[in-house]
Design a binder for these strands. Structure first.
Lengths: 264, 264
DNA sequence: ACCATCGTTCCGATGAGCGGGACTCACCCC
DNA sequence: GGGGTGAGTCCCGCTCATCGGAACGATGGT
């Protein structure tokens, strides 16, 4: 009822729980009740009750008087199907690319207006890159994101362009017409480049990974420090890698697990 | 109020949500409303409402008329702190062991009466093993579980012995006194063996991984098909590997992230 | 045309969740 | 010692979101 609207429109108990869980994405480790209260703006007693409930069901775990992600979440996250089949098919190709180039090799999927990295092999100089497996990045400011947007239905792209496009570097494309032109160009060439649009001093290239029906499931990207990486050379490598993954996905057909049950 | 008690004592909305989420651990991919209703025993309309709420907050995602783990869960699972620092420290040592032996190399932590595998490198013949990253296994029927139990406080062990100890093979230790004697022996030797106690035809050895204070954080295990793996030889390798990881953990001290922020 | 099974929607009753506020510690600084 | 600050915990009356039985529409196999 307060005129100021909440973070999201969270009314349900589950919504509040999700708001609390999301605070742990930033990877700050363990958080206390007061810290969560401050960050979420929820009433302290609500945070207290909800967090303890989350501990009871195993989604969080208690470490002293602070709380952190529980192993149940780790367990559930490992079974995320969209990531799973894709990563398994991609890994060998990613290793090859990583060995051959020595640069950062990443696999990402598109979620709303952001990309989520599902696997990363870091290059020699890549230890300091902020991208993490499971982390997010604005789609318009990443070659992986741009290539996935380029092959997305128009309404999805419109959704991205509708919001504000954060400017991460002075080269980030934040102008909708410019971005649309770039996407059209990517659609023609089949590859997207990041020319210091995400991080100053870092460039990269990305190509789409498709399933047997041609639908784009994700993107393979190679990136590295400007000067130490040749985009024209990486261009073909990343295309070949993405095609290889796509072919394996089409052959393996069943994105379903090849694992045997033995329940539990 | 029904005399028959539910699966767990779930009364809260969060509890019901967790019951639903746990159904996805088995890795069956996408589940429909009716399927979830059947498995959980919850009323259909409750399942419907709760699942759609979970989709709204991003914990699940909708694929046609079925539902599956959402990327938010993948993301949260990746930040599970207990697993994270440990895996990062362990990975190089695990790769070495894997290259040197060609057998399955696994890293596990203890949660209640089960182990959770946080990283696995499969050996040549290991494709068919049912253990998965993020999967669980009864602690008493695994060398990794036994070695962690051996160095756990007595009341934790009592909790394990209190319940029923499932018999996975005809060699599984299910007799509390026998198991206690085994744990004492492990405490003396510092290494635990699995002599076809978890899976017929598979043997292995495990050693504890400790932090700087000597507290046991997890266990490193090597396993392989009986006959193709020599326990006496693997014994020393797994001890050395576990010590190496422990040393790196103590040096790296801060189990905290070395990553730079760049929020979101 | 029938039946089975799916997902969806409705709606009255109720109790779980809500949250303001009070409480208890532990700690630090006058 | 006294007073402040900020932590986690607890209480309790109000109320609104949750609950779940039941009805509904869509689908598809026989």
């Amino acid at each position: 009822m307060s005129p100021a609207h909440r973070n999201d429109g969270e009314v349900s108990a589950i919504g509040r729980a999700a708001v609390l869980l999301k605070e742990f994405r930033k990877g700050d480790g363990a958080l206390g009740i007061a810290e969560l209260t401050r960050r979420t703006g929820l009433p302290k007693s609500t945070v207290h009750r909800t967090v303890h409930e989350l501990v009871r069901v195993g989604l969080l775990e208690q470490a002293g008087s602070a709380f952190r992600i529980g192993l149940l979440l780790f367990e559930l996250g490992q079974t995320a199907p969209r990531a799973n089949g894709l990563v398994e098919a991609a890994r060998p190709h990613m290793v090859n690319l990583h060995d051959a180039t020595g640069h950062n090799v990443a696999l990402a999927v598109l979620e709303e207006i952001e990309v989520v990295y599902v696997e990363i092999f870091r290059g020699d100089r890549g230890r300091r890159l902020p991208q993490r497996v499971g982390g997010r990045w604005p789609a318009h400011a990443s070659c992986a994101g741009k290539v996935m947007l380029a092959f997305s239905p128009a309404d999805k792209v419109r959704g991205v362009l509708g919001g504000v496009l954060p400017r991460l570097t002075d080269r980030t494309l934040t102008d909708p017409p410019a971005l649309l032109a770039e996407l059209a160009q990517i659609r023609r060439s089949g590859v997207a480049f990041d020319r210091q649009e995400s991080i100053a001093g870092v460039v990269g290239a990305a190509a789409p990974v498709r399933d047997g029906d041609g639908a784009v499931l994700g993107a393979l990207a190679i990136s590295g420090p400007v000067g130490r990486i040749s985009l024209s050379r990486v261009d073909t490598a990343v295309r070949a890698g993405a095609l290889g993954i796509s072919r394996d996905l089409a052959r393996g057909a069943s994105v379903v697990r090849p694992v045997l049950g033995l329940g539990r």
